[in-house]
Design a protein around this nucleic acid. Sequence first.
DNA 1: CTGTTAGCGCTTTCAT
DNA 2: ATGAAAGCGCTAACAG
Lengths: 343, 343
Amino acid sequence: MSIHKDITIYDIAEALNLSPATVSRGLKEHPSIRKDTRKRILDKAKEMGYRQNFFASNLRRNRTNTIGVIVPRLNSYFMSAVIAGMEKIANQAGYNLIISQSMESVAKEIVNAKTLYNTRVDGLLVSLAYGTDDISHFEDLLEKGVPLIFFDRVFDHPLCTSIVIDNYKAGYEVTQHLISQGCRRIVHATASLKRNVYADRLKGYKHALSDNGIPYDEKLVFINNLSEQASTEVCKTLLQMEPRPDAIFASNDAFAVNCIRELKQAGISIPQDIAVAGFNNDPLSKVIEPNLTTVNYPGNEMGEVAASTLIRRLDLQHGTSLNTIVLRHELIVRESSLRKPKV
Amino acid sequence: MSIHKDITIYDIAEALNLSPATVSRGLKEHPSIRKDTRKRILDKAKEMGYRQNFFASNLRRNRTNTIGVIVPRLNSYFMSAVIAGMEKIANQAGYNLIISQSMESVAKEIVNAKTLYNTRVDGLLVSLAYGTDDISHFEDLLEKGVPLIFFDRVFDHPLCTSIVIDNYKAGYEVTQHLISQGCRRIVHATASLKRNVYADRLKGYKHALSDNGIPYDEKLVFINNLSEQASTEVCKTLLQMEPRPDAIFASNDAFAVNCIRELKQAGISIPQDIAVAGFNNDPLSKVIEPNLTTVNYPGNEMGEVAASTLIRRLDLQHGTSLNTIVLRHELIVRESSLRKPKV
DNA sequence: CTGTTAGCGCTTTCAT
DNA sequence: ATGAAAGCGCTAACAG
C-alpha cells in the first residue's frame, strides 16, 4: 500500500511553467484566464491526480462549505425524506452535510450546537427537540453571522427563517373531518406544546370544536412523548372514560397506529366505536388495518426548501428574506375514520 | 448583528505573555507543560471565547477528524439504528460523520466516494448499493491508506474489515422454521445476488431445503429490488402458480408486509394458505396483521461496532485486525408463519 | 491575462 | 518548561 504524497497546485504550476496563482484560478472559473491555459491546467491536474486541499482553501477563505443539521431523530420516514431532500440540494451546490441527532434531549441539542459551532459550519438547519425552551445555545452561531434556518419544529427569531406547514389548519381539518363523521368526543394526543407543530395543531383542534359548538374538554387532550408506552397509557385511560371518547386525533402516525393496535386488542372496533386519525402520512399508515386517515407532510420538499433557502443566503450574502415559508399539506382520508359513506 | 473576529492562540498568547507554541500545547494535553500555566491558558481561552480552527490544525496535521459514511438509503428503521450507533461512538471519540446515500445507484455511489475522497475523510464506513460490481471507486482512498470498513452489504478485500451477521445461518433458520410449520413450496424473494446479504440468505434457504429433502425449484426464487411494485408482481405470479406456493420468505420486512397486504386482498389467508416471513425486525413487522415472523438485526450494535473498529484503526494506526466481525441475529417467530401450535 | 507576495491559524522541530 | 521560526496549501490583493 503505497501512500503517495499529495499533488498541490505548486506541482501543477511547476509542470506547466506557470505560477501557482494562475493554476489556482484555472481550477476555478475565474474570468480572467485564457481558455486554453485553463484547459491545460485542468488536464494536467487530472493527469497528476490532483485533489484540492479544502483545509488550506477553507483556512484562507474562512469558509467551510459545510452545513450542519440537527434533528430530533433520524428514525422516521418523514425525517429521512427531509434529509434526502437536503442532501440533494446541498450536494448540487457543493456543500456537505453534517447531520446530528438530539434524540429529543435538550442537553444533547446544546452539545450538538456547540460541536457544529466548533466545526465552523457555514449554516445551520435545525428542528428542535421537545423540551427546548430558548435558543441561547445558538446565540454564538448567530453572533458570528452564521445563518440558521428552522424547519418543522421552529422557533420565532428575527434572524431566522422557518419552514413549516400550516399546522393550525391541518389540525383544524382533521378535527373537522372527524366531526363530520359524527364524532363528538375527540381525544387529541400530542407532544410538548413548546413546539409549534403541537401547539398549532391543538389550536386547530380547539377551533374546529368551537366552530361546531362542541365544548372543549381538557381531559380529552393528552400531552406526552408519543412513545409506544404513552399510547398504551392513553388507551387505558380513554377506555375507562365515561362516556367513552369516539375518536382519536394523534399527532403522529406511529402513535395512532399503536392506539389502533391497542384498541383492537381491547375489542374496540375501528372506526365504528372509535375513529382514528394520525399525522405525517408515514408508510405505516397504509399497513395498519384499517388504513389510517392522516395528513400528508411534504418531507422531501421541506428538506429541499430548507437547504436551498439556506444556500441562497450563503451564496448571495442575501440579507433579508422571508421569515416563514409555508408548505402545502393535504388531508388523506382512509378507513380508520370513515363512519359515513364518502361524500 | 456584530460579527466579532475570531480569537486565535496568538490572542491568548499575547494576553498571557506566552508564546503561541505554549498556548497550543496548553490547549492539548502536552506532557511538558506546567500544570498551572495549562490552567491559566484554558481559563483565558474560555474567557476570551476561543475556538480552535480545525482547518489550520487539519492543514498542519493532515487529518480531518471526519468519517465518511455511504449507505444505500437512510429510510429504514435498520439504517437509522445503524447511524445512531455510529454517531454515538464517533462523537465520543471526537469525530464528525458525513453521511451520504447512494440511493442504490452505482453511479451515485461512485460520486459519493469521490466527494469523500476530496473531503479527505480519515476513514470510511460503507454499505454497498445493489449493483456494485467492484470497489475500484474506493481504490484511490485505499491507496492513500484511508481505512475502509464495510458493514451489512460488504465486499471481500484484504485491506477491509467487514461487519455482518450470519446471513447464511439466518436464511437457513427462517427456511427451516417454515418447513417445520409444514410448508414445502417456499418462495424466496430477495435482491441482487451481488450482495452478500442476499446471496448468503439464498444459500441458507437452499441448504435448509436440501437438508429436508425438498427439491430446489428456481421458479420459486424471485430476484428484484424489493420495491412495492415488485411485491405486487411477485404476488400476482405466485397466485397463478400450480401448485400454489405455501410460504414466502422475503429478504426484508417491507416486502413481506406488502405481500401480506396483497395476498389478503386476494382472499388468501395468512398463515393458513400462505405463511410469510421477513427480515430485519422493522417496527412494521408488529403492525401488520398477522404480526410478521422475522429476523432481528442488531442495527444499533452494527453501527457502534463499525465505528469503533474504524476509530481504533485510526487512533492506533492499528495495522492488522479481524477481517470479518459477525454479530448475533435472532429468529423472531410471530403469527404470520405459525400454522402449528408453538412447541 | 499572469505573476509576486503575504498570510489564513495552527503544529512542530529545534533550540534554550 | 517555554520560545522562535518554518511551513502546511491555498487565495486574494496588487502589480504588471
